[in-house]
Design a protein around this nucleic acid. Structure first.
Lengths: 254, 254
DNA sequence: GCCGAGCGTATCGGAGAGCGATACCGGCGG
DNA sequence: CCGCCGGTATCGCTCTCCGATACGCTCGGC
């Protein structure tokens, strides 16, 4: 959902939109930026960038750093508000905790958001304590197992439309980029009740995921269990963990 | 120190500030809100609330929900930007991972932000898989061990000023609310190189924390190790875990 | 040592974006 | 039936924001 739905133009606040355009610049350019760089990246002139940045600095949504400006801590407060208010997150936390204990592998809750999914809860396994597993990370829907699990609950026509809107770039040499091939995987997920993706987002990684629905049966999220091919064959991994992912996702649905 | 530093009035964008005032409403009222409620809570009229909310809906920073509006998923993207850009977070992730393995207790990295600290990384222990340990949560500086560890690196005068600005409300019946008593605890932390707080934020909880500094020696964060009095006496906990917290914090400093 | 290209900062008059009072429709409860 | 909420829509006036412009600095190249 949240397809950045179009809004009545007469009620649209230009300066507000520009302020967020500024904040979003760091999504593409993750480093300290100067006013000039910000202005160019956000598509505004230097004066506007100056006013906006001063304002955001005052509010704590930007901070000064060596070499320019960076996002401020206040961003974390707003994310906290989101997580705290969303009932699914609260319900999911203990379920995922148990799931990780039972499985011993990495366990995630991802939120379905149109052409991308976004990780909301991440419980890493013992061995991988490393970075890159932060909440807030987005990945494309078409090549992730959570995304395919969600698409499995949509009509084929809707899946087609979603795939058409997606930029289907290969993340690894195993990534399926042909819409027909992806659709076939979605069909498989629909039959089995879960999706399995092998090395399409990260080489060596195997992930099973089951969809979480709202009360109307629409997909809103997915429960992932992720492991490495060093430990498991795809078949073993599916047999062993898919039922757990489905059970957890079902417990969170409705 | 992100003290919401005051800014030149002439460069301040009123509509931007009001938009963020709207977003911040859910910090105090974590549920779906109607336009009227938002307007009242943000101190603006209904027309302004309407325009701002329509804009934020269009940008994905708000979403419609049963009963009104709630924060949108886009908030998580901005938090992700912050975490990804801040070098300390990247460096801290593996260090905290190891720390949790060694200690087996809950381990956190909190960021020092004036009168509050804010949790950026949280690795819960096996037994407590439950909620309430989300990143983005803020707690007062004066009554947390991370906060006191940071204050220990400041001059007494600065500590006094910070305590004067703090709303020293008791969170439990053990919370110290007398500035002089807190200052004494800060002195103790200064001598020992770490702070220990027992049941001042949560009954039954004992926490040790050591400060992380920037290259200039100023406190910017703290490494926490938290356990329960059901398992440990205060003395045992300090002896066993304080050295680990200090070692981790030192590794992240400078 | 000079220069130009950046940086952040500051100024200012014009104009149009945003303001806010007002009104409308629909549902709910009394 | 009415009054009180909800969300939505309209519409002049005005004050906010726009963006061109300029200033003082610190660089690095030459």
């Amino acid at each position: 959902m949240t397809d950045t739905g179009e809004i009545d133009e007469r009620l649209f606040l230009r300066s507000v939109a520009r302020a967020f355009a500024v904040l979003e610049v760091w999504g593409a350019e993750p480093r300290a930026l100067s006013l000039g760089e910000i202005a160019k990246a956000a598509g505004i002139d230097k004066s506007a960038a100056q006013r906006i940045c001063q304002t955001l600095l005052g509010l704590g949504y930007l901070e000064r750093a060596a070499g320019g400006l960076v996002p401020g801590k206040r961003a974390l407060d707003r994310a906290f508000d989101y997580l705290r208010i969303t009932p699914l997150i609260e319900r999911a936390a203990p379920v995922l905790g148990n799931l990780r204990e039972t499985c011993g592998e990495r366990v995630d809750l991802s939120l379905f958001d149109g052409v991308t999914i976004l990780y909301a809860l991440r419980l890493q396994s013992r061995r991988e304590a490393f970075f890159a597993t932060l909440p807030g990370r987005r990945l494309p829907t078409f090549c992730t197992s959570g995304g395919r699990a969600c698409m499995a609950l949509m009509a084929d026509a809707a899946v087609d439309r979603l795939l058409a809107r997606s930029e289907m770039l290969a993340r690894t040499r195993k990534t399926l980029t042909d819409p027909a091939a992806v659709l076939e995987k979605v069909h498989e997920a629909r039959e089995q009740g879960y999706a399995c993706v092998v090395e399409e987002t990260l080489l060596g990684e195997v992930v099973v995921a089951a969809p979480v629905t709202d009360s109307a049966g629409r997909p809103v999220a997915a429960v992932h269990i992720a492991g490495t091919l060093a430990d498991w064959s795809e078949a073993e991994f599916r047999r062993r963990f898919a039922p757990h992912a489905i059970a957890a996702a079902d417990a969170l649905s409705g």
